[in-house]
Design a protein around this nucleic acid. Sequence first.
DNA 1: TTTAATTTAGCACAACTGTATTAAAACATC
DNA 2: GATGTTTTAATACAGTTGTGCTAAATTAAA
Lengths: 204, 204
Amino acid sequence: MPKIVDHHKQKEKLAEAAWRVILREGMERASVRNIAEEAGLSAGSLRHYFSTQSELLAFSMEMVSVRVKERIRGLPFTGEPIADAQLLLWELLPIDEERRAEMAVWLAFTAKALSDPLLQPLKDEIYAEMKLGMVSVIEELFNRYHSTASKEERALEAERLYALLDGLAIHSIMKPAEVDAGVMKSVIKQHINSICRNDPAAGG
Amino acid sequence: MPKIVDHHKQKEKLAEAAWRVILREGMERASVRNIAEEAGLSAGSLRHYFSTQSELLAFSMEMVSVRVKERIRGLPFTGEPIADAQLLLWELLPIDEERRAEMAVWLAFTAKALSDPLLQPLKDEIYAEMKLGMVSVIEELFNRYHSTASKEERALEAERLYALLDGLAIHSIMKPAEVDAGVMKSVIKQHINSICRNDPAAGG
DNA sequence: TTTAATTTAGCACAACTGTATTAAAACATC
DNA sequence: GATGTTTTAATACAGTTGTGCTAAATTAAA
């Protein structure tokens, strides 16, 4: 009896429209009407899928993280700590236009999450997941190249790596010409190299 | 003849009110009316000092950078590279409540600058100044502890240090409990130590 | 074709936005 | 105290915001 429309597909379409608006005009222009128009729908239709603006934005933010996680799951990890670390870290940096856009949108969401209670849980969740990822990267590297390191030193190194990663990403968003893919990759290589300095074969 | 009101003092008062609103309710609530009310003025009076909202925000953003620069100028530098580096880097991190608030406001401005043309020049200017600061820190450290490093390596190290600094600051704003002053200081020490690893006396 | 469920469009509403204009209030000089 | 300039306050306006509600369009099943 009903008109069949893939509910979830429509929500994804709206979330992607939200990304484009945020990317092009900033978060303050991400109104219900603007996003609906970007998606080619009326504001009334949008409201049929998301009853509030916050719901839409939360879904849109979550979709970014889901996409990134899917890509990470598909990475061809080898088991070699340094190669795997580079593979993961590069995936988390804005090294091409698609990832640049993604990261810019993510940044806008994160900034909004600082004052929007509805976005905070997801922000915290992602922070925790990222931190876990960094911890496991450091564990892999240290177990192979720096096994004498203490537990505290490893925790510190994980936070250092995570901060470096986010700092690089933000700088690349702010100054794409100065901090391009080459610079970011070099810095990451340098960092991994300096962590694994006990092994002369490390880095490259 | 005229009522004498310190024009500049009033502008500073409004800029500080803007900080408080942004900190408490986020950038999207930083309307002319809200800021005026926070400062205890009417919106009409505010407009007498800033004819547009962008002007007010730009001034408010600039005031953050001026304050930070003033504090840096007043730092008791000693001439010893490691001590001076720590002194400068800690000053640029949100290590206490005042600096935390300042950094949160700065972050909000930076995020807005990505889509607001009026704020971009200042954002770029500060980025360049910070980068220069990082370059000079690295130069000092390398000239003393790692003088064999190439020009390229030094440039890379400057970007690495800057990214680490901003990443730490953002993480501390996002998760104050996890990334507190102690963690930030330890990470910075660890980083300086790893840069100056040629000298056994380095770090501490 | 009729029926019924679902999606869509459009308008209404109150609140808020930036900006402009205008009149009142405040006060240093004469 | 009167004068004249600056600061302040208040209002107006057009546009946008989020959200609620209603009616029309669409379409699978009977």
